[in-house]
Design a protein around this nucleic acid. Structure first.
Lengths: 116, 116
DNA sequence: GTAACGTACAACTTTATGGTTGTAGATGCG
DNA sequence: CGCATCTACAACCATAAAGTTGTACGTTAC
C-alpha cells in the first residue's frame, strides 16, 4: 500500500541532499543522536552559516527535522525518509530483475506456451 | 567483505546523478533493455545534446555504461551500482537501528550491568 | 541589565548545472 | 560516391549551489 507517493521534485531533493559528504555526515550524526546546529557546526571546517545551509537543505528534503530547545535548534534524522529513498532504489532494481527473469524464462526448458 | 570502498566523490556523483527525473528515467529504461543514445533522446522533450549530457553524468557515476555498436552507442544500466547506493542507505539506517537498540536496552528489564 | 551564545537571514562571489545551438567526425545505406 | 544518421564536443546562457561575511534578534547566564 502506497502511503504517500513522492513527487519527482521530492525525490530530486532527497538525492540532491545526499549528494554531499558533509550532509551525509550530518545525517549520520543526527541519526545517532539529536544534536544542535552549533554543535554540528563545530564538527566541520566551515562557517556556522554554511552548516546552517546544509541543515536547511536536509530539512527541505525532510531527511532531518529541527526542534527548538531553549535557544538551540536540535536536529534529528528522519529514518522513514531514508527508507523511502531505499524503496526508490529497490524499484529500480526490480526493473532489472524483471529483465533477467524474462531472459531466464526465454532460456529455460520449455518454449513460450503461447505465440502470436 | 568490502569489495571496493567508494570515495566521497564517487558517492556524491551517484546521488547527484539520481537527483534528476530525466536521469532516473534513463536508468529505468537502460535497466529494462539496452538502448541507443538517440533512441533515448527521442523519448524526451529536449535536445539530443542535453540527453547526451545526462547520459554522460550517469556514465561518470557508473550507473550506466556505453558500448559502441555500429554508429550507435548502446547504453546499459549497471545494477551493481544501484546496489552500492542501497548499501550506503542501509549503512545509515543501521546507525539509526543501533540507536534504538541502545535505547531499548536501557528501557528493558535489567538495569545496566555496569555503571561508572 | 549586560554579555555571551545560538540562530536567522540577507548580500555577495564563485563555480557547477542544465539547457541551448552549432560544427565536425564516423558509420550505414542507396 | 553522396546523403542521412548517430555521436562528440565546444561555446554560450541562465539559474542554482556552496561558500563567505555581516547584521539582527531571542535566550541563557552572571
Amino acid at each position: 500500500m502506497v502511503v504517500d507517493a513522492l513527487t519527482d521534485e521530492e525525490v530530486n531533493r532527497i538525492f540532491r541532499a545526499l549528494a554531499d559528504a558533509t550532509r551525509r555526515d550530518i545525517v549520520r550524526r543526527t541519526l545517532l543522536a539529536d544534536i544542535s546546529v552549533s554543535s554540528l557546526a563545530h564538527a566541520y571546517d566551515m562557517s556556522f552559516a554554511a552548516v546552517q545551509k546544509h541543515v536547511a537543505v536536509l530539512e527541505e528534503a525532510r531527511l532531518v527535522t529541527k526542534e527548538p530547545r531553549g535557544r538551540e535548534r536540535m536536529v534529528r534524522g528522519v529514518p522513514e525518509r531514508l527508507r523511502q529513498a531505499q524503496r526508490l532504489l529497490d524499484d529500480l532494481e526490480l526493473i532489472w530483475r524483471a529483465r533477467t527473469d524474462r531472459l531466464d524464462a526465454l532460456l529455460s526448458e520449455s518454449p513460450p506456451p503461447e505465440k502470436g
